[in-house]
Design a protein around this nucleic acid. Structure first.
Lengths: 207, 207
DNA sequence: GAGGCCGTTACCCCTTGGGGTGATTTTAAA
DNA sequence: TTTAAAATCACCCCAAGGGGTAACGGCCTC
């Protein structure tokens, strides 16, 4: 079992069950099926899934779009639309919510699962790029001479824009110590200033 | 006409024509149809499309995957897979090439176009985030007091890690001038050092 | 033509940061 | 146990950068 939690938001119970069955056969775990926008938000909060499948045209309106907006604002998960028709105007609205996929009914099991798979993969990849959390491991394997633990602590704070004095306070050491670590890190990172450190780290984290 | 250029890479002429017809009806411009990986690369170079549709299983192999890898290395465009079957192993390989979509045959016209639409939209959005080409317009509408043209030039170079002297040379002005621009930009950006400028810009570009 | 904004430059001050040398202690490995 | 690397801190030096003030020409707008 993948143990990937999926929430289905679909107002037609038969179709919802059909989707759920497909997903289960593809080793996904369907943690909920809700039939309206009002039910969706509490469910997202109570039992947050890894990905959501959203029907755009819920109960005659386009509540799916507002659910997507809510997800973008409050929950940090990917979602794919699964809808029965797609006029240009709806599609235009929908794509601006940044869905990770858009499936038009009738769907196939293979198409459904492949789209979900790609969506999840791209979403996690995207995170790595957008918020390059500095990972010592990754940086070091790209450097000729690896950074020590403490040097990493220091350059991490430089990356966040702190001064030597601030860094010293945060790490409970003297500013002299901070300066030594920075100097050594400069050598290893081939940098000559705080700004170039940040630039180098940006490059390294984007592989 | 959207004037969005699409390249179709598909070894079965009938299916390729079917796809092309769908795309044309959706106002896309099909700028090429190629039947193999060898033909694809020159075509991508000669007549670069905005997006590519790739069949994974070209000529009995999985040449589609290598085309995708080539695109990721040499061309900076999105692509979607359009394939007839999808076993787990192929899908696993395929998703690691970071496709913007994955369509399983048989496809519908609406599904095809919606996937392309979403793929293109997400790709351009992604660029804005991944390479925060500092866009004056976007930054300014988030600032209480807008940056002037010249101030923007300067902070852009700070973002790239250059020193005052280097910036002065690049812009053909005195370092004094650079310093004044930086000082004014600091006020508007609420920054106190080059490093904090970079951090602030990171924040602003991620909305 | 007067007032503003922008870009340009100069000169001053002085804090911060980058660079060098050296020394001690802790920690880990050999 | 010896050796090495990492971490800690203290000096010193000085250039680069941040902060203030002032001035001048160009351009646009009223």
């Amino acid at each position: 079992m993948n143990d990937i939690k999926v929430l289905i938001i679909e107002d037609e119970p038969l179709i919802a069950e059909d989707i759920a069955a497909c997903l289960r056969r593809c080793d996904y775990r369907v943690t909920g099926i809700v039939y309206s926008a009002e039910d969706a938000l509490p469910e997202l909060a109570r039992n947050p899934p890894d990905i959501a499948m959203i029907d755009i045209n819920l109960n005659g309106g386009q509540e799916g779009i507002s659910i997507a907006n809510a997800i973008n604002e409050r929950f940090y998960i990917p979602f794919v639309y699964l809808t029965s028709y797609s006029d240009r105007k709806t599609l235009e609205l929908a794509k601006h919510t940044g869905p990770s996929g858009y499936i038009v009914k009738p769907f196939t099991e293979a198409g459904l699962c492949a789209t979900l798979e790609v969506a999840l993969h791209n979403f996690t990849q995207k995170n790595k790029h957008q918020f390059p959390d500095l990972v010592l491991h990754k940086i070091n394997q790209l450097l000729p001479s690896p950074l020590s633990m403490r040097e990493f602590d220091v350059i991490q704070l430089i990356y966040e824009g702190f001064s030597n004095h601030q860094i010293a306070e945060k790490l409970f050491v003297s500013t002299n110590t901070v300066k030594v670590h920075i100097k050594n890190a400069y050598l290893k990172l081939d940098a000559i200033s705080r700004a170039t450190v940040i630039v180098r780290l940006r490059e390294l984290m984007l592989k």
